[in-house]
Nucleic acid binder design. Structure first.
Lengths: 241, 241
DNA sequence: ATTTCAAATCTGATATATCAAGTTTCACAC
DNA sequence: GTGTGAAACTTGATATATCAGATTTGAAAT
């Protein structure tokens, strides 16, 4: 939940209340909209692998000029979702195997960050993590899919913060290729829900115990397993690793 | 060595010689030039963290219009080297801690790929890996820094190919933040040379033996250790993990 | 029918113009 | 001196125009 920016004021030594800088990314720019829309479309399979993308067409479809389109395409290119052939255009580069690798990338990065989190988390962070885990237990028991989706994000976000990593956290965001609608489907399955809970609890305990290696291992297994579940849904068959 | 595109012709069943597709990325576009130049400048510390970037200025310096500049900035943004604040401009986002995390990211990804390579490599690949390792031994013994730099790239490239991963390999390329000139400095040190050789040999053996876990571990240690060496040179002090 | 090749066309790459949000400056009131 | 606010200025965001490489087309040659 990157947008969760608590604007709580805290008293300062100078007597003047202090506020956090407002998040500049609140404002939506056209290129951002195009980027998100395209990303979502590619990831949910609305383009075929290898399909050519025409800038002018896109611009017309979105009702904007080509400038923000080009910028959005450049972002997608750097993310690895499309490939740009100089003077020849942009081609979709996303398939099941690509998705599999995105999951592996996320597993590698997220487990690295869990490792660091276990080493760097403080007491306050441990307490917060425990609170989140408890909320997850409740939501799992009551079958509250929406809460679980939100808590899942909160959980991973908290691990990221505890690791004190900025770059790694950003990098991981880009490996996320399933959206809320798919998550919902998954969290409606009680078995799946329980598995995820057990894994999250194990991760939280390992981090709180400062067991970096175990945190790393459990996080990795969690990402890979849940990733496979997503794969099997999105691509309608079981993906093996 | 991404540009190492052997254009060797091989005879086909139809009697007509077959050639590989020429690499479309050979052609240089302005935005690409700007992207590379900026990336290199940022990574080698020619911009201060937090420094603002002015599009018009850049365009003038490069002697081009702002269009390719914007595109290059978009790429740098997605790479995480700069941050774009909507309607406010682009700011440099690179520091020692950023570099440290880039190394960790590379360690996580490269070890994941080594793991897969150990599982997926075939006999031909093992032989090729062995050849590369032997060449490294020779170059290390004779102190041929240039060969070592090239072989190092060949080695990692071969591991990537053996893993049969496309996305992961691409992702790793972006975590590379030191260039040939720095590598040269390092490879001129005999102690450092020997360490790198030992590590490369260990990795090659683990992969050839199909020992995925060991391949992963040795690769990770190698990336982190050599990364620390780079850090200590670029930032003039020892970086800890 | 197949090959050749140049003209027509398409389309990405770049340049330039315009617009609007953000920042700075500075006169003025208190 | 401090605070206010409007005008001037900067600069990123977007739109439009131009250029050139790539692809397609189709007539002529074989």
């Amino acid at each position: 939940m990157t947008a969760a920016n608590p604007s709580a004021a805290s008293p300062s030594a100078s007597g003047q209340a202090e506020f956090e800088k407002i998040d500049a990314s609140f404002q939506m720019t056209v290129r951002d909209h195009v980027h998100r829309a395209m990303r979502s479309a590619i990831i949910s399979g609305r383009f075929q692998p290898g399909q050519k993308i025409n800038e002018r067409n896109l611009a017309e479809q979105f009702g904007v000029s080509t400038t923000p389109i080009k910028e959005a395409l450049r972002q997608l290119e750097t993310e690895g979702l499309v490939e740009a052939l100089p003077r020849r255009g942009v081609v979709i580069r996303f398939s099941m195997s690509w998705a599999e690798e995105m999951i592996l990338a996320r597993a590698a990065l997220e487990s690295m960050i869990a490792h660091l989190a276990a080493k760097r988390i403080d007491e306050k962070g441990k307490a917060a993590l425990s609170v989140i885990a408890n909320r997850m237990k409740e939501a799992t028991a009551s079958g509250d899919a929406d809460s679980l989706i939100a808590l899942n994000e909160t959980f991973h976000d908290h691990v990221h913060r505890s690791s004190q990593c900025g770059y790694l956290a950003k990098l991981i965001e880009r490996q996320q290729f399933y959206d809320a609608s798919i998550r919902r489907v998954i969290h409606l399955d009680p078995t799946e829900r329980q598995k995820a809970l057990d894994e999250h609890v194990a991760i939280a305990e390992a981090i709180a115990a400062g067991d970096a290696d175990k945190a790393e291992r459990t996080m990795r297994d969690h990402v890979v397993r849940s990733g496979d579940t997503y794969l099997s849904i999105v691509f309608k068959k079981k993906g093996e690793v």
